[in-house]
Design a protein around this nucleic acid. Structure first.
Length: 345
RNA sequence: UGGGGCGUCGUCAAGUGGUAAGACAUCAGGUUUUGGUCCUGACAUUCGGGGGUUCGAAUCCUCCCGCCCCAG
């Protein structure tokens, strides 16, 4: 059996590669170039080739930038234009890493795909399931909740039990230096973390409009709905007696609905593009749903109807944002499914 | 130009003789593989302007400027 290791150039995937090698697996390393060719592109490829050479693992660099543009960047832009708040990282996993990249790796002879995600695959009563990583601060299961379970069952996650803080020492001990020493936190295809500039440079975006309280009272102006997202506080520029948050966007009237924090909670939400890790009838009566990365998963009643997932929150829950992922877990941290939020209820 | 009221940070606003609260906004950091949230820090030597009283005024007096309301 051959395992392809997806290496990005960062330290996590490099460690994943090294850990698998210690397990004496048949390996090959694949690097997908998601961005158009550039000198940085070459530098990363060279660095990775060198590291793989040190480890004695065959290395393949693949130009996937066109697929990335079609499957991640274009939808990202389209969703922003439609008034949604897309989550490109969550889409990149099913469409690119476990999609195009995995397919390319199979063509190179790989049976399985390994990545440097901080998650694990474990045997549960529903079968082999995706589970939160041991390092709770670094767990990335939320971003993988849209990946089909059949793909995940062909995945290897060597960092399942690794703590992020131990990674640098690990690599140093192995004499490995990642070509991208400090991982970038921003969206990989948006320079300088400036998504607003990226969008305006790429196409025409909607213009200014009124900012109103839930009762309809106009108290300010926004510079484009796409510049704001549900739950956002900063950047509104509206002086008020208390902090104001974005509650909603009314695309039809180009109105930003804002209000104090106590208006921010929602009772539930609906999600589409549902990805079930197991049949919904096998879910517990009460699940835990996470509607944002970095948010605690909270209890909810969940049911499937007309191909969509409905959630009834059992605790106060900050209004979910259309376009973001709703990841469903059980108490043990098993990922039961995921969907794209369409509406808060 | 009769009567009344008001003018303190970008906004709201406390302070009525003892040496300019606070909130919002903004900016800068921190946290963070999306957008956000959250945390920390910075933000009026000065109170519409001039003069005066006082050891000392945003607070008292005075003149000027500006705004608002009610009458004409």
């Amino acid at each position: 059996m051959t395992i392809a290791v997806a290496v990005s150039g960062g330290m996590d995937s490099l460690l994943a590669l090294a850990l698998l090698q210690e397990r004496d697996e048949e390996l090959l390393a694949v690097h997908g170039h998601f961005l158009p060719p550039s000198t940085a592109w070459e530098r990363v490829a060279e660095g990775l080739a060198r590291a793989c050479d040190t480890l004695g693992v065959p290395f393949h660099a693949l130009d996937l930038h066109q697929a990335f543009d079609d499957r991640v960047i274009k939808p990202f832009v389209a969703e922003y234009r439609a008034g949604l708040t897309p989550n490109p990282c969550a889409m990149c996993n099913p469409r690119m890493k476990f999609g195009v990249l995995f397919d390319a790796a199979r063509n190179l002879g790989a049976d399985r795909l390994a990545t440097g995600h901080y998650v694990s695959m474990e045997d549960r009563e529903q079968g082999r399931m995706l589970v939160r990583g041991r390092d709770a601060a670094k767990d990335q299961s939320y971003f993988l909740s849209m990946v089909p379970v059949e793909k995940l069952r062909l995945a290897e996650f060597p960092l399942a039990r690794t703590f992020k803080r131990d990674v640098p020492a690990f690599l140093q001990g192995l004499g490995l230096t990642p070509p991208l020493p400090s991982e970038s936190q921003e969206i990989c295809f948006v320079p300088d973390d400036d998504y607003q500039h990226f969008l305006t440079a790429r196409c025409d975006m909607s213009g200014p409009g009124p900012a109103a309280l839930p009762d309809g009272r106009v108290i300010g102006e926004h510079q484009g709905l796409w510049r704001h997202t549900q739950g956002q506080r900063r950047g509104l520029g509206i002086p008020w007696s208390e902090p104001l948050y974005v509650l909603d966007k009314d695309v039809a009237s180009n109105t930003l609905i804002v209000g104090p924090k106590e208006f921010l909670d929602a009772k539930g939400c609906v999600a589409g593009q549902v990805n079930l890790m197991c049949p919904a009838r096998d879910w517990p009566g009460s699940v835990l749903v996470q509607t944002r990365y970095r948010q605690k998963a909270k209890p909810a009643k969940a049911w499937l109807s007309g191909g969509k997932l409905y959630f009834d929150f059992l605790e106060p829950h900050t209004r979910p944002t259309p376009g973001q992922v709703a990841a469903v877990y059980d108490e043990a941290g098993t990922v039961l499914g995921g969907g794209i939020i369409e509406e808060a209820l």
